[in-house]
Write a protein that binds this DNA or RNA. Structure first.
Lengths: 242, 242
DNA sequence: ATTCTACTCCCCAGAAACTGCGAGGCCGGG
DNA sequence: CCCGGCCTCGCAGTTTCTGGGGAGTAGAAT
């Protein structure tokens, strides 16, 4: 495996990131970045709701396909952990206690991902969630020092990467991010925290019929099939908070 | 009004941010930061839909109270605009066309907020949304140059600010995050993407009754009142990804 | 001035979900 | 070996949700 290189000059890189003109440019930049940092892999991974997710990075296609096919997305502690965190995290600090997680790690190491990793969670509008991760093969101490040294730069790079990816996003939700009205938000929030329609209506001091109108209206705006679906969408788009 | 100062040394500041030990420290740091940058105001503002929101910064209390009382939160183009954006934004670029928005701007200028502003949206887990904003009184050109020059540093500062604010947040869920079984996850996921129980059962090639057992089991594990509640909890805990 | 959006209320019938009961097989850990 | 967790299936009765009507107010936007 390669050596951890010196920290590259960020200014030029970010400028080139800002002037990137398509997903291909991002792929080129990410490879360059990997070489400059001297790590084994860097990946930017858009973890999207609708299944169609975009990613670019230096993993081989084989591993990516394997990852998707095996449904690793659902058990990967990196995903699970970063989803609950704000700050970047060293993979070693995550919870690898479950059997499936350890199987995943073993499989990953066998596919040359490396035994160390560092992931930066990034969140955008409408509940967008992405990860910017570096992986490498080295000792714990080396990795700890590397991530400590480059943490700030990496946060910035991850940020700019996501900004670009958002610009190029293919599936810019055709619906222009329908906003919910205040009452609709209240209604959906109450349902999301477990109230029945009757309870929610009571809490808002309105008739259950009225509450139903809000829920239906929200369901329509969100393009949802039923109440549960609507609450799920409202949550993933960050329209309501539980 | 003051002068736009030179960019401060970030390293020391971020280190002090990282070792901040309470909300008071953040208040001290934000005032210092304002003086170093030579802008009129800097505020960090946690925008929570549930009403209880934390903020620190250099606005006078009078303006903050006025802002809340007048319900400006709901009409402020800064909030609205940043909520839909990922990248920091100059207030001049926002949509001030509505009457209420212009009234807000007029009111703000009269209260000494300044005619220029720059806001960085920040998002955390569970739909957390915060703003880190600077405001000042100067010409468009000056402000444009200032924000261009300091954009990257400010993004980083905003990031670390939010990290600290999250640490100090009172309402951290202590619950040990019950895991769901694979089948339960599948069932909940299907419900979350809008399938009815019958459809979901069909998709998994099991009877509807069986599916129901999974949902009930998941509901129990999550301490949820009903299916909608369970799906909402599973989503916010990152147990399922829609 | 008119249109539009948000908010409020009402009825009804059919579809779907919830509650509570019970049952058997499979697998891994103590 | 037994217990517990997971996966699978069934019935019956009650409650809730859904989707189709209609109708009026107030405030903001054009």
């Amino acid at each position: 495996m390669g050596f951890l290189g010196n920290a590259p000059r960020l200014d030029g890189l970010i400028e080139r990131l800002e002037s990137a003109n398509g997903l291909d440019d991002l792929q080129i930049l990410i490879e360059e970045l990997r070489d400059q940092y001297g790590v084994d892999h860097i990946i930017y991974h858009w973890v999207n709701s609708s299944g169609e997710q975009y990613g670019c990075g230096t993993y081989d296609l084989e591993w990516v396909n394997r990852y998707v096919e095996k449904g690793y997305l659902r058990i990967d502690p990196v995903i699970q952990g970063c989803y609950q965190r704000f700050h970047p995290v060293n993979w070693k600090r995550l919870d690898w206690s479950s059997k499936s997680a350890r199987a995943l790690m073993k499989d990953a190491i066998e596919h040359g991902i490396g035994n160390q990793g560092f992931s930066i969670p990034i969140r955008g509008p409408n509940g967008q969630f992405a990860l910017f991760s570096l992986s490498h093969n080295c000792s714990d101490a080396e990795w700890e020092e590397f991530t400590e040294t480059n943490r700030r730069d990496l946060i910035l790079v991850a940020h700019y990467f996501n900004q670009k990816a958002l610009e190029f996003e293919p599936g810019r939700t055709p619906e222009p991010a329908q906003q919910l009205s205040p009452r609709e938000i209240e209604a959906m929030t109450l349902l999301a925290i477990g109230y029945s329609r009757a309870q929610a209506a009571d809490t808002l001091s309105i008739s259950e019929h009225t509450l139903r109108v809000y829920v239906e209206s929200a369901r329509f705006k969100l393009g949802a099939m039923n109440t549960t679906h609507a609450v799920a969408r409202a949550l993933s788009r960050g329209l309501i908070v539980v």
